Amino acid sequence: MPRLIVKDSEVVKIFAHLMVREENARLYDSLVVAEAVSDISADAQCILAPGYRLLRINHRVRPSSDRFEIALVNDLLKSVVYYNQVVISNIVDLNCRPATQNLVWRSADSRHSAVLRDVAQKVFFNYILNRYDVILSDNQQTGEGKFFWQRQMSNALALGLHVYYYQMLTASLIDVPDQDALDSLSDQLWSESDDQQYHLALISKIALPAGVSLSPVEE
């Protein structure tokens, strides 16, 4: 099972190439000309300013169906503003659609601040969660990754969704019923200890059985 990275130094290294103009432009070029690309702004309920498109790209990273990409691109600047690589995982003995993990990055350029304000959350809840029922915390996050997940878990509770804390070493799934419970788990979920790789957060549209186990995901 891939680990949850919360160390800032590792996060910066993972996404450094997207912060370089030439490499960002190269990714833009490869995404917009991909064979299996579709505009999902309506599905995600995102109203975008002129020049922006929210795209889903299938089979570019791998020919198999175990991952796809979502990107907010700016066609005027020919740049990638928001990038999300969604990995399909398996939940054993669970009657639902596959769980997913997110590898998420978004631009720090102030020119995109307005359009980015709600995109990540709408993609998370309106698009991914609507289609796959369960989202696992991402193993490679944005520079504000842990804060993004804290917000989404809090938002999920407010929306009446199910939030869980999963410890892989003991295969224990702990229900997080409210904000107080989420606050009390903060140290376990977002620490930088060596065993942090075995802790995951889950948001689900359905109640999960206590005995659920997560299968490994190949990187």
Rank of each mutant, 00 (worst) to 15 (best):
R117G: 08
N90W: 05
V119L: 13
W149K: 05
L94S: 12
N102L: 07
Y82W: 01
Q140D: 07
D109H: 10
H112F: 12
A120R: 10
A108E: 11
V104E: 05
V134D: 00
D138C: 13
Y82Q: 02
Y127G: 03
V115M: 09
C96V: 03
V87K: 09
V104M: 12
L136K: 01
V104R: 07
S107A: 01
N126K: 05
L94C: 08
I128F: 02
F148T: 02
S107Y: 03
N126S: 11
W149Y: 15
W105P: 03
D138N: 10
Y127Q: 00
Y83N: 09
I88E: 05
Q141L: 15
K146M: 07
R111W: 01
D93L: 11
D93H: 13
A120Y: 03
R97H: 06
P98V: 04
N90L: 05
H112G: 02
K78E: 14
L136G: 05
S113C: 11
D133T: 10
E144C: 12
Q101W: 02
S110V: 13
F125H: 08
V87L: 15
R106L: 05
S113K: 15
T100F: 13
C96F: 04
V80S: 08
N102H: 15
L103F: 05
E144A: 13
F148C: 10
N90H: 09
R117I: 12
N139A: 11
N130R: 12
D118G: 11
T100A: 10
V81R: 13
V92N: 09
D118Q: 12
R131H: 12
N95T: 06
